[in-house]
Design a protein around this nucleic acid. Structure first.
Lengths: 120, 120
DNA sequence: AGAATCGGTAACCGTTGTGTTACCAATAGG
DNA sequence: CCTATTGGTAACACAACGGTTACCGATTCT
């Protein structure tokens, strides 16, 4: 499971938020959540597999900790999407008015992209 | 469906990436993907519901466009998690060495948080 | 040694998600 | 007017998800 699917579950996000304040054991996390310990254990296994969490073994105890670097794929992807705002300097639009009018009925498959409104 | 679950699916991420380069119709998106048109349609419905996409009706055609603001929840959440790196100025650690040694075996439920290594 | 704690895993089950095909309404075009 | 295109939706099949209980091994403490 990748990081995107990992953070899709509210329980797992809650676990990550908890681990952000310091490592914890499975029993600790289970005590702080309304679901059973095996359920927590399974979520943690997915989070480890996704690279968002790591575990340190101390005798019979296992201390899970947050691996912030695992969020890098999510951050870079969202950043890339948000940053694709069309640059298009106003100078490039000079004298385009007549051209747009001529082709307004031809290019059906590729409608003119919005450059204002909710494109922000 | 919220934005987190929306971007968990690879197909939907692909759709969002495509819409980042300009609006498109369902048939266009279906032609660019290996799945059927109804499947695309259902994904788009979820994306609209998640606030990541909006549609403009033009006669019988429907032009879907990316709504970048819909990613705000994901960005703010990931930012918050990453930014929880323990500040802890070095000055606050002065004279703590003796204290730590005294309690190292007592505080079992709340182990000492990592402040180095993969915590980054 | 014996009891208790920690924690993983197997087996099972209901729900949800993702795809398909088939069908339908609405609009555009010859 | 008739046909083609666009696109939503219903019905269905199958896989995956998220939870439970039961059971197990390993370690720690008395």
């Amino acid at each position: 499971m990748d990081a995107f699917a990992a953070i899709a579950d509210p329980v797992r996000r809650s676990l990550l938020e908890r681990l952000a304040s310091g490592p914890a054991r499975v029993v600790d996390l289970a005590a702080e959540h309304p679901i059973s310990r095996p359920a927590i254990s399974k979520h943690l296994r997915l989070l480890v597999e996704a690279g968002l969490v790591a575990a340190d073994q101390h005798g019979r105890e296992r201390h899970y900790r947050l691996v912030r670097a695992g969020l890098a794929p999510v951050r870079s992807w969202t950043d890339a999407l948000v940053r694709t705002a069309p640059p298009i300097p106003a100078s490039a639009l000079d004298g385009l008015d007549l051209e747009v009018r001529r082709t307004s009925r031809d290019r059906r498959g590729t409608p003119t992209p919005r450059t204002h409104e909710e494109t922000a």
